[in-house]
Design a protein around this nucleic acid. Structure first.
Length: 586
RNA sequence: CGGGGUAUGGCGCAGUUUGGUAGCGCGUCCGCUUUGGGAGCGGAAGGCCGCCGGUUCAAAUCCGGCUACCCCGACCA
């Protein structure tokens, strides 16, 4: 259907909207693709809706091609299934809740694991029915504390979510791999320049998990990748290579020293260098100290447990990494020093820690704190620290934990190369859920021996509306939007400039012929609009090819421009349709 | 939830310090001119100045309270 600018429901803005910061948000609003309806909730206008549906179509085609079957659940859901899985309470304020006229609790679905699981349970009861992968493309509702950046984090958004059901673990791995391949094809077609990173399954339970990230500074996820290209991971999932254990021969016995007024690492290093210079003359640094950070874990059943994390003093504890490591427990700051008199704030040391120590508090160490390493650390008395305290000789932890911050330049766990940090938008996430939901909701089938077994599941998501924004972030330039052809609202933007009837007659004819040839056309047939306005709009709106009909017509030529490269070519009017068609099909 | 900011026509903003007819640019409508890089001239429509209360002869402006939105952080498959 030919899109005519003269009647298209569109108003482009000459200036940036004041409330939009990130490029995708700014440009989509300015180019008249979306409008804000409420915080984190957007309306789609004709051009935006076309892009959205193109993205949705590509996702659907690739899911169908992989043999997954599409279903469609309601967005408005009853409370019971979410009560059964525990998420009615777990989701907390992020759940949009409402009641119907009979006062029954309802919710707007934030995600649909429960519904899928129960549907399969309803219909299937034999191992012969499996494996099965089903999906939907559905509007999801999450009452985010802080929606931001337009489509990147909304309270209403569209997600494609798939679920796989298998009897055995190997089957789950196969289903997972099928989804992984389908995602690769999907994101390739969407024109994204994504990175696949190892991720934490976090609160979802389960084991293997990977994220598809579109690298960009405005992304909300931080990930690392090895400069040698053999490793990429979300910071939460980064594995620290463990240095070899060291020999502690020659390390003097541990000795406690007075270090007044040194509650922080900085003050400690200063006093250590001033009062206790090292024998070899090398100055103490923060990396020589062992920092013991107390936090409170809140377990899902409500139990509160203090935990001490020991990290080299030059690193902070990264709360996100810590939470990922202790999931499903949550982390709160520790304030209860009154009930734990042995914990001396600012001077906490290993001597009182550990499940077998005087406090009985679990003590987990950063992987860098290997046996044989010597540390300056708290002596559990105000103003006192212990020097040359050796792991394995003088203290041990209850295990290790990945909770220290990850930094640019850290070491790759695969080949020892340098890790670089970057930000990205999460556009897809695949993981092996395992049996958590199947167990909670009683999804079992009979195996070949007639025995009931619990089904193992995988869960796979693509943020469809978010992908629209991610594509913009990956493709925009100074002039405006710049769509990859397959998701663009049209293949070619035909611009008629000038006032001659000839120009518009030619434009009408070429637009019609292009449409007849199967080329999607946006036709700027606005009369009495100056050429400058039309060119600016064409660049802002971002169709991949622009065909200008104007002053060249006197010489029998029109101009074809590539929106991305800016390249221009003059072609005879008679060849314009064939030329554009060839470009579109190439 | 903590910190910062903003709220004036469809959009972007000035006006608030020092109370006195509500303004500018863009957009929209009408007329004439203009047509290869966001045209010109003339005319017009469009505003409970976020809300509630107070002070005052008089409040966009001063005072008190509230709300909404944006940004940073916390939170968030």
């Amino acid at each position: 259907m030919l899109l005519r600018m003269s009647s298209l429901f569109l108003r482009t803005l000459r200036e940036d909207p004041a409330d939009a910061e990130v490029p995708s948000h700014r440009l989509l609003v300015r180019a008249g693709y979306i409008r804000r309806a409420a915080p984190g909730i957007y309306s789609w206008l004709p051009l935006g809706w076309k892009v959205f549906r193109n993205v949705e179509r590509i996702v659907r085609e690739e899911m169908d091609r992989a043999g997954f079957q599409e279903v469609h659940f309601p967005a408005l859901l009853p409370r019971e299934p979410y009560e059964a899985s525990g998420r009615w309470t777990e989701y907390g304020d992020n759940l949009f809740r409402l009641t119907d006229r009979r006062d029954n609790d309802m919710l707007l679905g934030p995600t649909h694991e429960e519904m899928f699981t129960l549907l399969v349970k309803d219909l299937y009861s034999s191992y012969k029915d499996l494996p099965l992968s089903i999906y939907q493309i559905q509007t999801k509702y999450r009452d985010e504390a802080r929606p931001r950046a337009g489509l990147l984090r909304g309270r209403e958004f569209v997600m494609k979510d798939s679920y796989s059901f298998d009897v055995e673990d190997v089957g789950l791995q196969r289903s997972y791999e099928e989804h992984r391949q389908a995602y690769i094809r999907t994101f390739d077609r969407l024109g994204l320049d994504y990175v696949i990173v190892s991720a934490m399954s976090g609160a979802m339970g389960g084991s293997t998990s990977e994220e598809f990230l579109q690298p960009t500074d405005v992304g909300e996820d931080t990930f690392v990748r090895c400069v040698n290209g053999d490793y990429a991971a979300n910071v939460e999932a980064v594995v620290t290579p463990v240095p070899p254990a060291r020999d502690w021969d020659g390390v003097p016995p541990a000795h406690v020293e007075d270090t007044p007024d040194t509650p922080t690492i900085d003050t400690l290093v200063e006093v250590a260098n001033g009062t206790f210079p090292r024998a070899d003359g090398r100055p103490w640094t923060a990396a020589d100290t062992l920092k013991n950070v107390v936090v409170t874990l809140v377990h899902p059943d409500g139990d509160r447990e203090p935990l001490v994390v020991g990290v080299p003093g030059d690193r902070e504890v990264d709360l996100k990494r810590l939470e990922a490591a202790v999931a499903p427990a949550e982390v709160e700051s520790f304030t209860d020093f009154e009930r734990h008199p042995l914990l001396v704030k600012g001077y906490i040391g290993p001597a009182v820690l550990g499940e077998k120590g005087p406090t009985g508090i679990r003590y987990l160490l950063d992987p860098r704190v290997v046996p044989g390493t010597a540390w300056i650390t708290g002596a559990n008395e105000p103003g006192r620290h212990v020097f040359d305290l050796v792991n394995g000789r003088d203290f041990t932890g209850d295990g290790t934990i990945e909770a220290a911050e990850v930094r640019d330049g850290d070491t790759c766990p695969i080949d020892g190369g340098r890790l670089e940090t970057a930000r990205g938008i999460e556009i897809g996430h695949i993981f092996q859920l395992g049996r958590k939901y199947a167990e909670a909701l009683g999804l079992q089938v009979l195996d070949e021996h007639g025995k009931l077994v619990t089904v193992t599941m995988g869960s796979y998501g693509i943020g469809v509306s978010r992908a629209v924004a991610a594509i913009v972030e990956a493709t925009y330039d100074d002039l405006g939007l710049c769509w990859p052809r397959e998701v663009a609202p049209a293949d070619v933007h035909v611009v008629a400039t000038g006032k001659d009837a000839d120009v518009f007659e030619t434009g009408d004819r070429i637009a019609a012929e292009l449409e007849a040839a199967g080329v999607r056309v946006l036709y700027d047939d606005r009369y009495r609009v100056s050429p400058g306005v039309k060119f600016k709009d064409a660049e802002l709106l971002g169709m991949p090819t622009i065909l200008v009909i104007g002053k060249g017509l006197a010489d029998g030529t029109v101009e074809i421009r590539d929106r991305r490269t800016g390249e221009r070519e003059e072609v005879p009017v008679g060849e314009a349709v064939a030329r554009v068609t060839a470009i579109v099909r190439s």
